[in-house]
């Protein structure tokens, strides 16, 4: 029986002065404390009892977690606690990483995006996370603070299962960094929900393509699929087909079929696995077609 608490259960809101202090506190209270950013997922889990915490440790504003920095030479860094709406409205992101804008804009509702953060979207490790695909195809790496020091975690190996990541107690994701995007790239995120917008993704297809003289086809495509496997899925075979064979409608369909074949979705309350598989094929084909039409010009 699903019967959440009427409000947030009793807990302490902790405001450490530094990331070090925050990490220390989180280690001292392993199992009963979590870093706190936007709260939009966290509150739901606290109410329904999935998380049973004594402390919420605020990390917003600590050491750049609220900042967006773009450097034309090195790329982009987005603080983990930056809310989605800040990403959507940021001119440098819109100009250089438009796929991030497109993906961030599909998260829930405007007022939820005022609070929901990119760090939260990634660290929740939901296979349905809307921005994760864009972060993967742009080659994002997470900057993680821990008591042992700072380290980089590539997204490709970050997710371990639904809700599970490589993070250890005391680890705080402070930001995500992206290299400069490939020149003349085009991106597309197609999200299928039950409602036209605002729903969680039944499936989500992220595609990024760009002209690439190293590829036999002359183009490289990066694809990430949401809600079709325990972790965000990169369909390598589909990417390979698009790199190796001269592009046309049939090859795109072949790649879309390969994407479908690489999925291992489940039946759940949102959709059957069968529908998910067909949608991955159809929407991957749609996204690839959209992107290809634009980059071949």
């Amino acid at each position: 029986m699903i019967n959440p608490h009427p409000g947030l259960p009793e807990l302490e809101y902790v405001m450490p002065a530094s990331l070090d202090e925050a990490s220390k506190f989180l280690i001292e209270h392993t199992g009963e404390a979590k870093p706190f950013m936007g709260g939009t997922d966290c509150f739901v889990r606290l109410r329904d009892g999935a998380w049973n915490l004594k402390y919420l440790v605020n990390v917003k504003g600590l050491d750049g977690t609220n900042e967006i920095r773009f450097d034309p030479k090195n790329g982009l860094t987005i603080g983990a606690a930056v809310p989605m709406n800040k990403i959507v409205s940021h001119p440098d992101i819109n100009k250089h990483y438009p796929l991030l804008t497109e993906a961030a804009r599909t998260v829930a509702s405007y007022q939820l995006r005022s609070r929901a953060t990119i760090g939260g979207n990634i660290c929740n490790a939901s296979p349905a996370g809307d921005t994760i695909g864009a972060c993967i195809v742009y080659g994002g790496k997470l900057n993680v603070h821990s008591i042992k020091g700072k380290r980089l975690e590539p997204l490709a190996s970050f997710f371990k299962g639904p809700g599970k990541t490589v993070l250890e107690p005391g680890d705080i994701v402070t930001s995500i960094s992206f290299p400069l995007p490939p020149p003349n790239h085009v991106g597309r995120y197609i999200k299928l929900g039950r409602n036209k917008i605002s729903d969680l993704a039944i499936v989500g297809v992220t595609v990024l393509g760009y002209p690439d003289s190293n590829a036999k086809s002359g183009y490289t495509f990066k694809i990430a699929l949401a809600s079709v496997a325990p972790v965000p899925l990169v369909p390598l075979k589909a990417e390979q087909i698009l790199a190796d064979k001269p592009l046309n409608e049939n090859i795109i369909s072949e790649a879309a079929q390969a994407a479908m074949d690489s999925c291992t979705p489940i039946d759940d309350v949102r959709s059957s696995a069968r529908y998910r598989k067909y949608m991955i094929r159809n929407l991957t084909r749609q996204a690839l077609t959209d992107v290809w039409q634009k980059i071949k010009k």
């Binding site: 809101y13 709260g39 509150f43 919420l56 605020n58 709406n85 609070r115």
Partner: peptide, 13 residues
């Protein structure tokens, strides 16, 4: 100035 779901914000914040 930004709309928020006030059920999703801690008063302490």
């Amino acid at each position: 100035g930004e709309p928020v779901n006030s059920c999703m914000v801690l008063a302490a914040e």
